[in-house]
């Protein structure tokens, strides 16, 4: 497997002496290049800490994270000070609060911030910024004030800012939590496009189970460990385990699994989205009427 991120014995504690409770404890995992992974878990399960460790915002108490960077042409160690700039060029991060991550007052200047800092020649910056803004559908807004945009638009500017760095992997830390339904849809569509069109590896931390259902792989964090790891279909079969961790399954899955349990065996338990659920139910009604 061509991996992009590999964690080995990853451990993190917010206590300085390292003897206190571990927020992340002895994790081993790899993220495949070009994949879309969702990490779910309740508040305090350690999922955001894992995300921050992967891009070097936090440094592990023990253990290592390796980034297999094509741009740098070698494997980087996140905890190595000599590698950290390459790590940040390879792995970008979009945070939860849209107001916390815009630095400029004009949309295109904000998007140009990272490539400028990276010393990209100015004609190339122009191209990168325009491409990034087109990718998130905000090219028309390039000269607008950033603070007058809606939350969803601000998140898209933040995403464009990262795309302008041509990252290989982008981590979204609950980036849709503060958005309205339209903003959430827009951001999720762009996330899927980044993976499908540009081959960027996507890691999505979320509380919304229907967003996690869009991923190739779902990891469930609980008390600093990964307790479930698999395709959404497999993970959302474990309804009871998820509930015991303070999580739930998407409503479509919940409905299907309850109908299945009530003896409608033609409906699988692990339906993922509304479209699939509707299709199966409609087909069953059609079969019945004939």
């Amino acid at each position: 497997m061509d991996y992009i991120i590999k964690a080995q014995g990853l451990t993190f504690s917010y206590d300085d002496d390292g003897n206190g409770s571990k927020t992340v404890e002895n994790l081993d995992f790899t993220i495949e290049r070009g994949s879309f992974t969702a990490i779910i878990g309740h508040n305090g399960s350690g999922k955001s800490t894992i995300a921050k460790l992967m891009c070097g915002v936090l440094e592990p108490t023990s253990g290592e994270i390796f980034i297999n960077s094509k741009g740098a042409g070698r494997t980087l160690r996140v905890s190595d000070d000599n590698d950290i700039f390459d790590v940040r060029k390879t792995v970008g991060m979009v945070f939860q609060n849209p107001d916390n991550q815009l630095v400029a007052t004009v949309v295109e200047e904000d998007v140009a911030f990272a490539p400028e800092n990276m010393g990209v020649p100015s004609n190339e910056i122009r191209q990168k910024v325009d491409d990034a803004l087109r990718a998130v559908g905000l090219y028309e807004y390039r000269l607008h004030d950033t603070h007058k945009l809606s939350g969803g638009q601000k998140q898209r500017v933040a995403i464009a800012g990262i795309l302008a760095m041509s990252p290989e992997c982008v981590i979204f830390d609950e980036s849709t939590a503060m958005l309205d339904p339209r903003g959430r849809d827009d951001v999720m569509r762009i996330i899927c496009e980044m993976r499908n069109k540009y081959g960027i590896t996507v890691i999505l931390i979320t509380h919304y189970m229907n967003e996690a259902a869009l991923a190739d792989r779902v990891m469930v964090a609980e008390a600093g460990k990964i307790i479930l790891d698999g395709t959404p279909k497999d993970v959302f079969l474990q309804k009871e385990l998820l509930k015991s961790c303070g999580l739930e399954v998407p409503q479509a899955t919940e409905l299907a699994s309850r109908l299945h349990a009530a003896g409608i065996s033609d409906i699988p338990q692990n339906v993922l989205d509304t479209e699939e659920a509707a299709q199966i139910i409609a087909a069953l009604i059609a079969k019945n009427t004939k």
């Binding site: 309205d180 339904p181 339209r182 849809d185 229907n210 998407p250 409503q251 479509a252 409905l255 509304t274 479209e275 659920a277 509707a278 299709q279 139910i281 409609a282 087909a283 009604i285 059609a286």
Partner: peptide
């Protein structure tokens, strides 16, 4: 107006639509 329907309402509407098509 940019609002979503609850997921469950969406499922029921889609079921109706698919059935009516047939």
């Amino acid at each position: 107006s940019g609002l979503a329907l609850p997921q469950i309402t969406n499922i029921m509407l889609k079921v109706k639509e698919k059935c009516e098509k047939q």
